[in-house]
Amino acid sequence: MNQQKQIFEVIDLWKADKKQYVKKSSFSAYILLIENHLLPNFGDKREVQEADVQLFVFQKLNNGLSQKTIKDILIVLKMILKFGAKRKFLNYTPFDIQFPTDREKQSIDVLSRSDQKKIMNYIQEHFTFRNLGVYICLSAGIRIGEICALTWEDIDTDNGIINVRRTIQRIYNIDDGLRKTELILDTPKTKNSIRDIPLNKDLLKILKPFKKIVNPSFFVLTNDAKPTEPRTYRSYYKTLMKDLGMPDLKFHGLRHSFATRCIESNCDYKTVSVLLGHSNISTTLNLYVHPNMEQKRKQLNKCSKL
């Protein structure tokens, strides 16, 4: 039997193994969770008990960490423990962790139809390539990393399609204990995110003249060979929204707004799911299929007429 090891030793061995199989961005996310949460709490242990993990969960919740983030941390912890147990570096007993019932109503922030129209009209009248990116996100629901990675080659105006094939993100790269960041252009994390999105007639009308004169290899947001990165574009977006007197909506709210408009126009849920690049339709249903006050009032008025 192999000699029992401390968790930090198992983590080092797990990292060397895992790095061979996962995308660079995924590995970077794992490392951040390990460095910030797992090593400080479990690094010096030789065994992890369920009670220790349950206490860890309560501590992280009290520190303001979301349930989703904590569950992501536990996924990494389980991968490490299973790896160690398989190689007989430690003993691992599966644990069943309880989370407090989340009684807060989950909601997403979206633009009202009037605000969305105001933004899109403004962009049509005050064209810049960076403004065009906001218009595309409202019209196609693509993510900030995807719009930053979009090139003119990805826009097919002949067939009226946007081809989403890449994403840009800044990741943490930890080598020899030194933490630095790196901007990477890569394929999306899941195969569902690689998708083709039809262009609506207004967006197609804007894009067609440019396709005839731009360099197809240039990035859309910069119209240059060099892209802009998500945090820079997010900062630009915040300034634009403030100047237009819009609500303080996160950039991802543009994607939420696109999905909400699709649902409001009675687009079927499977189609919305595919357009958004969700891994399964339940993600779409959980996020967006909740009647808003306007929809509820409309249905009740229908009932009262009966």
Rank of each mutant, 00 (worst) to 15 (best):
L55D: 14
Q106W: 09
Y92F: 12
T101A: 10
Q54H: 03
K60T: 05
K15L: 12
D17G: 02
Y92D: 12
K18I: 05
K88F: 09
V110T: 13
Y21R: 13
L61H: 04
K19P: 00
S66T: 14
F83C: 06
S25M: 10
F89E: 03
N36W: 08
K15R: 09
A85T: 14
I31D: 13
K71D: 15
T93H: 07
I80N: 04
S25L: 06
L32Q: 15
I73G: 03
L33F: 14
K15N: 01
A16G: 04
T69N: 11
Q20R: 01
A29D: 14
I97T: 06
K23Y: 06
S26N: 11
V53E: 04
N41I: 02
M79I: 08
A16W: 02
A29C: 08
K86M: 10
K82Q: 14
D72W: 02
S66L: 00
N36L: 09
F56Y: 11
L55E: 07
M79K: 13
R87M: 02
N63V: 00
S112M: 02
E47Q: 15
Q20V: 09
Q59M: 05
K45E: 03
K15D: 01
K23D: 03
S66I: 05
F42K: 08
G43R: 07
K68V: 05
K88D: 14
F89H: 09
F83W: 06
K18P: 03
Q59H: 07
H37N: 14
S25A: 15
D52M: 14
K105Q: 12
K105E: 15
T93L: 04
R46M: 05
K23L: 04
S26A: 15
Q106S: 04
K78V: 08
T93G: 03
E47I: 09
V76M: 01
K68R: 15
N91V: 12
S107I: 08
K60G: 01
K88H: 15
K19E: 06
I31K: 15
P40I: 05
Q59G: 00
V22S: 05
F99V: 06
K15A: 01
N91H: 07
S107D: 07
Q54M: 07
K15W: 05
I73N: 11
I73H: 06
A29Q: 07
V110R: 02
A85E: 12
K82W: 09
Q67C: 07
L90D: 07
F95V: 14
F89S: 00
T69H: 06
I70K: 01
F95D: 10
K60L: 11
V48K: 06
L32H: 10
